[in-house]
Nucleic acid binder design. Structure first.
Length: 597
DNA sequence: CTATTCAGC
DNA sequence: CGCTGAATAGT
């Protein structure tokens, strides 16, 4: 059986005689390993064993905390030398998890990191799931036994008997080794090696440090906000039931639609797949006809903030340190951005007063301040660079308000005569350009007729020929080669670009337009993160990087390091890439995230 | 599990 | 109009 020769697992010898430390003095250049744990949280769960694989066909599993042994708890001491040996490259699938787990055992994993999960992501960022199961299936045609089946009714992997645990776990390290042999030559072939080794691989350790650091939250403040919101929501609920003349579940779009459009007889606007829409813009329209929609809007906003942030964040805080530790996923987005989950700290409210109050609950430790640094107009600057559009280049080179300048072109008047509304239109259009702009989308965003939006777009391209040419060239490239790339060569295939269905094809063209811009911005801030992280280490600073929010970095800065940090952060962020226009970073600091903005 | 809605960049 | 993750209702 082919599978048996490929993944012939050998159980760890269970001898009592003094085990030999795994030696790196012979010819060991690479070691594949995989940590098994009681769960998936690298800061909370415990290691139960480690699988190892040095060569094709031989893999081992070392149990350390299984409920039915035998265990080899000395394994950490024995393996430390090789895991910390920088001359031995480490191979694994999702190494951020393994390195974070091992750090808690006092082991700092060193050496080149061949992460097969990240490799799979670079090869195909459209792939929805880069789990070992999925990647093994795609590249090795290997069907892994489902983890849940192995787990059965047991509480954790620690309770799985070794007879089952050994072959299952050992296979993970073996799979990683096999995948490395396949995926890394493919990265080379695709011209993605430099992106991997210079950016994604060093980023693994940066993200591990950010996640381990976490960010402190003010629990009493959030508790107070919760009480205040509870009263507010009770009042709004009473008002809604009174005005509606009945009680119903305000959070049910279906029940709300019945009240608005059947019982009260208001005129429905947009439709969804299942019925009439009750989304913000619909309710804002309806607010002209009736007083209920405004109450609903208020209720919705406050309920969202309370349930998603104010009541949820405290549950995820470490009870001892009051810090929350998000998970930054490196292999989720199709464009190269990071994503954040459990909790998502990349969508903490900011726009409203309540948003400011919530950000006020993200605080610095005693003797520290939070420093926020964000790129100004990063994607538009990248568009200026990639398109060479004279107007955009000029605006950024001469620190002219870019939206006002677009408005002046669009409405044919001097920059200083542009009205607030004209600037708002121009700003929406500038965003639209980055998003691949359709007349329909722009009309929705500006609440104008699609025909009127089409005229704006026509006028925009007439006054921005460089941008027009860039978009045409990018779409043509997508058609010709089937994918688009960022400045650093990150690729995204766009299979629908040749579709005969116009809606599908145009959606693909918007993706083709947006991906190089969004993706290059992602590349750029990743470079800045790595360089700043390196500076923090080499200068032995006590400051911690604590969050990344796409174009913003947040630091918890020791007060006496504030000056030097601001210099370092500005230098590394603004110097991350040399573009045809300068990069601009805005910074602010304070006791909490609200003050830092 | 899917749809809707909405928080962010 | 691009890219996400979470809460909620309801099947």
């Amino acid at each position: 059986m082919k599978q048996a020769s490929l993944f012939d697992q050998q159980p760890e010898p269970q001898k009592r005689c003094a085990p030999q430390s795994v030696s790196s003095s012979h010819s060991l250049k690479e070691l594949a390993f995989d940590v098994e744990a009681t769960g998936s949280n690298p800061l909370r769960d415990q290691i139960v064993g480690i699988s190892l694989c040095r060569e094709h066909g031989k893999a081992y599993y070392v149990p350390v905390r299984h409920s039915e042994g035998p265990n080899l708890p000395e394994a950490f001491l024995l393996l430390r030398g090789v895991l910390e040996d920088a001359a031995v490259a480490k191979i694994g699938h999702n190494l951020k998890f393994d390195t974070m787990m091992l750090r808690r055992e006092g082991i700092e994993v060193s050496g080149l990191l061949y992460d097969t999960m990240v490799a799979s992501y670079l090869l195909n960022p459209n792939k929805p799931n880069h789990s070992l199961e999925e990647v093994g299936l795609e590249y090795l045609q290997h069907r892994k036994r489902p983890f849940l089946e192995v787990l059965g009714k047991r509480a954790s992997f620690a309770d799985v008997p070794l007879a089952e645990a050994v072959p299952y776990a050992a296979e993970d390290a073996a799979l990683a080794l096999e995948l490395k042999g396949i995926l890394f030559p493919m990265l080379e072939q695709e011209g993605l090696s430099q992106l991997y080794f210079d950016i994604e691989m060093p980023l693994i350790r940066v993200l591990a440090d950010i996640e381990s650091a976490g960010v402190k939250i003010d629990l009493p403040l959030l508790h107070g906000l919760s009480k205040e919101l509870e009263r507010e929501l009770d009042n709004l609920q009473a008002a809604i039931y009174r005005v509606a003349g009945q009680e119903f579940n305000i959070n049910s779009p279906k029940q709300l639609a019945k009240v608005l459009f059947e019982d009260l007889g208001l005129k429905p606007g947009k439709k969804t797949k299942t019925g009439f829409s009750t989304s913000v813009d619909v309710l804002e329209d309806l607010a002209h006809q009736h007083e209920l929609p405004a109450h609903i809007l208020g209720y919705r906003t406050l309920h969202k903030l309370k349930t998603t942030y104010i009541d949820t964040l405290p549950l995820l805080a470490d009870p001892g340190t009051k810090r929350i530790h998000t998970s930054f996923n490196q292999t989720v987005t199709a464009t190269g951005r990071l994503s954040s989950s459990e909790p998502n700290l990349q969508n903490i409210p900011v726009r409203t007063d309540w948003g400011t109050r919530i950000r006020g609950a993200f605080i610095a430790e005693e003797g520290h301040v939070l420093l926020s640094a964000d790129y100004s107009q990063i994607e538009l600057r990248i568009l200026a660079h990639m398109s060479g559009d004279e107007g955009l280049l000029h605006a950024f080179r001469h620190t002219i308000d870019v939206h006002a300048r677009t408005a002046s072109e669009l409405f044919q008047k001097p920059v200083d005569e542009v009205s607030a509304d004209e600037r708002r239109f121009a700003k929406t259009i500038n965003f639209g350009v980055i998003y691949g702009m359709s007349a329909y989308g722009l009309s929705e965003a500006l609440s104008i007729a699609p025909k009127e939006a089409a005229e704006f777009i026509h006028h925009y391209f007439a006054t921005h020929p460089g941008v027009k040419a860039y978009i045409e060239k990018t779409i043509e490239t997508a058609r010709r080669q089937g994918y688009v790339s960022t400045l650093l060569g990150r690729k995204r295939h766009i299979p629908d670009i040749g579709s005969s269905n116009i809606n599908v094809r145009q959606a693909a063209e918007r993706i083709a337009t947006n991906t190089p811009l969004q993706g290059t911005a992602a590349d750029l801030i990743k470079i800045a993160m790595i360089r700043i992280h390196t500076m923090l280490k080499t200068e032995k600073l006590r400051t911690k990087m604590v969050l990344q929010i796409h174009d913003e970095l947040l630091f918890e800065v020791q007060e006496d390091e504030l000056d030097i940090l601001q210099k370092i952060v500005r230098h590394e962020m603004e110097g991350a890439m040399k573009l045809a226009v300068p990069l601009k970073v805005d910074m602010g600091w304070g006791q909490n995230w609200a003050e830092a903005h």
